[in-house]
Nucleic acid binder design. Sequence first.
DNA 1: CGCCTGTTTGACTCGCGTCAATGAAAGTGG
DNA 2: CCACTTTCATTGACGCGAGTCAAACAGGCG
Lengths: 249, 249
Amino acid sequence: MPASETDNLAADIEAACTHNPNVSCGDCRLSGICLPLALGSSDIDHLDNIIQRGRPLQRHAHLFREGDEFKAVYAVRSGTLKAYRVTDSGNEQITGFYLPGEILGLDGIADGVHHSSAYALETAAICEIPFEALEELGRELPQLQRNFLRVMSREISEDQQLITLLGKNSATERIVALLLSLSSRNARRQLSATRFRLPMSRSDIGNYLGLTVETVSRTLTRLQRDQLLRIDNREVELLAAPELTAMLN
Amino acid sequence: MPASETDNLAADIEAACTHNPNVSCGDCRLSGICLPLALGSSDIDHLDNIIQRGRPLQRHAHLFREGDEFKAVYAVRSGTLKAYRVTDSGNEQITGFYLPGEILGLDGIADGVHHSSAYALETAAICEIPFEALEELGRELPQLQRNFLRVMSREISEDQQLITLLGKNSATERIVALLLSLSSRNARRQLSATRFRLPMSRSDIGNYLGLTVETVSRTLTRLQRDQLLRIDNREVELLAAPELTAMLN
DNA sequence: CGCCTGTTTGACTCGCGTCAATGAAAGTGG
DNA sequence: CCACTTTCATTGACGCGAGTCAAACAGGCG
């Protein structure tokens, strides 16, 4: 077994158990970073009762599409999704990647219609949180209401971070920023911050960061040549996190 | 009096009356597009009671700064503000312009700290909406709670629009998109969609769109040469809105 | 008026996109 | 299980759009 597979054992185990549709919020290992954050256990039970956990979303399947009626927001339990919009001229712009513990579908609340599509990059388990029920429950559980507003606010803040990245940073800086973002989101889930598997293709990375595939590839090659990281296909190892972080300053 | 001043008479009158700190939500001509949207009149009165209306914010003054404790969100009554962040390397990235009827400060909810600064491009009247009180009132008035979620969701959606613009569009397309956005936001406030005054400098436009001042200036000159618009300093007239719209497709 | 900031225009440069070709990996069907 | 196809990734040569540097010109404000 190659080294890279061993390294992802932890991730595989996590995937295996969070794929399980019968895990409730109270038992979910992501409850510390997801919507239930800081809820008491009886409140969590209430939240649990409104959440729908269907069978896993197949890889390459859509969770919802731009234009679909908005009925629920979704928490990722395992796997990775990308959210994207199609521009007037027909090409795709990825607006975010969603990892376990993160919530998507928030742009549909405004007018009851999803403004982006969500697509599974790998098989994913999803908690569906019907919006009407969430609103009602939020009225009874102020902490839940507050958490939900925080989740939305964080999404705004992160989108603005991306705007800044796209507006001001070079190709290299954008790519480093994405790698560090993935790294810290992994760390938050108790996974390795230095070695992980990219859930998305080079072309998705380029699309997200406003770059071409070729630029992404060349940049990664150069970062590797400069000993800042090692990358083999989708397996990344950050060799010099401090130096990488410094590149963004 | 030059033609451009006459044209802005309507805007001046609006500014004059919405600057008045004593106008309540029920009387405000922006209530149809602002937070009170679709509230009954008694509910509006409740909302009114929590809103603070101080004296106007002076041009070039800050409403809040990045790092300030988050205590309230703000509705613009008159004037224009820009929101911006300072990057690690010390330069500014504008994340949005806020016109009358629009709400800012939403990125502070997540962790109680503002992640952007807000700065008045021209003298502005502001409604301050203390967040705790809004949360409490929201629990009693589901429609208000819903409106607030919608406002946040719209902010997300618009930020993603900007991400797409920055990721996929040329300098010309970005500039045209901004002009059309300002145009439609003016129309929403019953002002002219074809003739208006830019509230921001060329350098702010460039900053917002990820371009340099020179590129903004050259692009506007070219659009004028091509008879798509007329621009004299900050006074714009869109001569061919359909063609401009078509440029984004 | 004179300063200071904002705007325009020109000449030059360069990072990233485009086009093209090859190679590696993953998915598909017999 | 292997051949075939398709998708994904890498690398090179070249060109262009937008950035940089520089200078002149408003225009607003004290």
